[in-house]
Amino acid sequence: MRIGLVTLYRGYNYGTSLQAYALKTYLENLGYETDIIWKRESAHSGRDIRLEKIFRMCKRSIFRPKLFKETVKGYLGNFHNAPSKKIKQKYLDFTEQKLKVHALSNKQLKEFAASPKTLAVVCGSDQIWKVNAANVDPMFYLQFVPKEKRVAYAPSFGGSSVPNYNKKIISKYLKSIPYISVREKSGIDVVYQLTGRKVESVIDPTLLMDWHELIKPSKEDYILLYFLDEPSDLVLKKIVKVAQKKHLKIYAIPHQFDKYDKYPEIQLKSVGPMEFPSIIANASCVYTDSFHGTAFSVNLNSPFMTFQRNYKSFKSQSSRITNFLELLDLSTQYITLQQQTSFNPDFPQLDFGKVNREIKKQREKSYKYLTGALRDIRVRS
Rank of each mutant, 00 (worst) to 15 (best):
residue 206 T to L: 14
residue 241 K to I: 02
residue 238 K to C: 02
residue 52 E to R: 14
residue 142 L to S: 07
residue 7 T to Q: 06
residue 156 S to Q: 11
residue 24 K to C: 07
residue 306 T to A: 14
residue 285 C to Y: 01
residue 279 I to C: 07
residue 219 K to D: 15
residue 355 V to S: 10
residue 96 E to D: 15
residue 260 Y to E: 01
residue 3 I to Q: 04
residue 148 E to Y: 13
residue 270 S to D: 14
residue 118 T to Y: 03
residue 13 N to G: 12
residue 106 N to A: 12
residue 328 L to K: 01
residue 89 Q to D: 14
residue 160 S to F: 08
residue 182 V to P: 06
residue 138 P to V: 11
residue 24 K to D: 04
residue 159 G to H: 05
residue 27 L to I: 10
residue 284 S to H: 12
residue 332 T to Q: 14
residue 9 Y to T: 05
residue 243 A to Q: 01
residue 184 E to V: 08
residue 238 K to S: 03
residue 277 P to G: 02
residue 200 E to V: 13
residue 341 T to I: 00
residue 91 Y to H: 15
residue 292 H to N: 02
residue 85 K to R: 14
residue 46 G to R: 14
residue 2 R to D: 08
residue 138 P to Q: 05
residue 347 F to L: 12
residue 272 G to V: 02
residue 71 T to C: 00
residue 117 K to M: 05
residue 163 P to N: 07
residue 365 K to H: 14
residue 364 E to N: 13
residue 128 I to M: 04
residue 260 Y to P: 00
residue 198 K to W: 00
residue 378 R to Q: 10
residue 362 Q to A: 00
residue 264 P to A: 00
residue 103 A to W: 12
residue 235 V to L: 07
residue 218 S to L: 12
residue 67 L to I: 15
residue 373 A to K: 08
residue 123 C to H: 02
residue 180 I to W: 03
residue 145 V to G: 10
residue 51 L to Y: 04
residue 276 F to L: 04
residue 337 L to R: 01
residue 209 M to T: 13
residue 178 P to A: 00
residue 262 K to V: 01
residue 191 V to I: 08
residue 251 Y to E: 00
residue 198 K to I: 08
residue 193 Q to K: 15
residue 48 D to G: 02
residue 162 V to C: 13
residue 169 I to R: 10
residue 15 G to M: 05
residue 145 V to E: 04
residue 319 S to Y: 01
residue 190 V to W: 06
residue 90 K to T: 04
residue 130 K to G: 03
residue 36 I to R: 06
residue 292 H to E: 01
residue 185 K to W: 02
residue 181 S to F: 05
residue 84 S to P: 09
residue 155 P to L: 09
residue 116 P to T: 05
residue 84 S to V: 09
residue 261 D to N: 13
residue 54 I to G: 02
residue 57 M to Y: 08
residue 349 Q to D: 11
residue 284 S to N: 11
residue 300 L to S: 01
residue 271 V to H: 03
residue 236 L to N: 06
residue 245 K to N: 12
residue 9 Y to A: 06
residue 27 L to A: 11
residue 310 N to H: 14
residue 211 W to D: 07
residue 96 E to L: 11
residue 84 S to E: 00
residue 48 D to N: 14
residue 93 D to T: 11
residue 361 K to R: 15
residue 101 V to I: 14
residue 33 E to Y: 12
residue 284 S to A: 09
residue 143 Q to D: 14
residue 277 P to N: 02
residue 192 Y to D: 06
residue 250 I to A: 01
residue 64 R to F: 04
residue 124 G to P: 05
residue 26 Y to P: 02
residue 87 I to G: 08
